[in-house]
Design a protein around this nucleic acid. Structure first.
Lengths: 210, 210
DNA sequence: CAAATTTAATTAAACGTTTGTTTAATTTTC
DNA sequence: GAAAATTAAACAAACGTTTAATTAAATTTG
């Protein structure tokens, strides 16, 4: 059922979605209000009307999709061994990064900025929390005797994020590397499976006790 | 000896260096000619005078520092085993990324852009060539019986680049992760060594035959 | 229920700034 | 004194935002 109220919300939502794609493709400053309005098929004044300003629109895009630690925690609890917990989180990263790759393009671009902003702080904090969950699993896995002792916990966690990130947010170069046609490569299940499987193997060989 | 001719070249060089830092920190569009001129302590007209346009200045910044495959090739030849070759290239990535992290911030931001530009094509081609050298080493290492057989060559190569990249171009979040004070963390030898050593271990456990 | 009224949504036009670039005059260098 | 380097000022175009007028929707009233 589509009520009249929902229509307005849908229009707002549509602006957010279009803006997310454009910001991801070109960067925040490169996208003008006029271009955004054209693509979203709305009047330029509607952005100020709905969001207040271009800056606030950007903030809303970022804040609405930050992966909640709660979701990660519940996934962690669903598995017994630390290996399974680690695999599940690694898989989640692949899924979330690929599914929302436009969004994560924005996030990692923001992360690379060296000038600190309010938004930057929020993003850093969020990523750090997610990272902590990851490194905690590894730390506990060591204590439980499931993983080797002399491993670099922080950098393994970094690796999981780094590989998933590069894979999902640099499609052009990844296509060349995997020798896949770019038009065909829509990050389908096939390549996602390959990525997940590889990370499982990589983590196992580095962490698992032979 | 500083001749008068060198003075002019130095001024040009200075503009390139300042622009590289600003573009890396804020993105191309976010940096105005006026801000750049202020930081570089020159008149705004000098950018057009020296480079023609802001766009051409950007192109020159990108093109002047792309890691040449020749340099990589010579390093590869200096080592005997494929393990050593691989380690040397992995180390080179760490050195180059960290040393020119402003530059590589620009590069990876450009890579994440989905709209193809001339610059984008040049960058992709360059990164692909470097990647090929890396995957060739692994492929030959397998043939030579130095590495395991059932490994994902393309994704190992991707991992080396991804980890080095994230480590060097996201200082704020990496500092938090490594629990290092940000003011102290200038990517000194200590952290570079840790990164290199970790990647050696990671690659060894995934590739080497036990 | 329909008319009147209020509220919300949408528009075109204009706002003052800022953008990258150019011009024309001036200073410096050779 | 010719050539190169540097400057302040001006340029049109594009920027994000605001305004005031108009249409659409919702609510109140008789």
């Amino acid at each position: 059922m589509v009520t009249e109220e929902n229509k307005s919300i849908e229009k707002r939502e549509n602006i957010l979605n279009v803006a997310e794609i454009l910001f991801a493709q070109q960067g925040f400053e490169a996208v003008s209000i006029r271009e955004l309005a054209k693509v979203a098929d709305i009047n330029i004044a509607m952005i100020s009307y709905y969001f207040g300003s271009k800056e606030k629109l950007y903030e809303e895009i970022v804040l609405r999709k930050l992966t909640s630690t709660e979701k990660m925690k519940s996934i962690i609890e669903q598995h017994n061994t630390y290996t399974d917990k680690l695999f599940a989180i690694s898989d989640l990263y692949a899924d979330v990064f690929i599914e929302n790759r436009n969004f994560h393009n924005i996030i990692f671009r923001e992360m690379a900025m060296e000038q600190r902003t309010m938004m930057n702080a929020v993003i850093t904090e969020n990523l750090y929390k997610n990272f902590t969950l990851l490194s905690d699993i590894i730390r506990k896995g060591i204590k439980a005797g499931e993983f080797k002792k002399n491993i670099d916990i922080e950098l393994v966690a970094t690796t999981v994020i780094a590989v998933n990130k590069l894979f999902s947010t640099s499609p052009i170069v990844i296509c060349k590397i995997l020798n896949v046609d770019e038009s065909e490569f829509t990050y389908g299940e096939k390549h996602k499976k390959r990525l997940k499987k590889y990370l499982h193997n990589l983590l196992t060989s580095y962490l698992a006790i032979p």
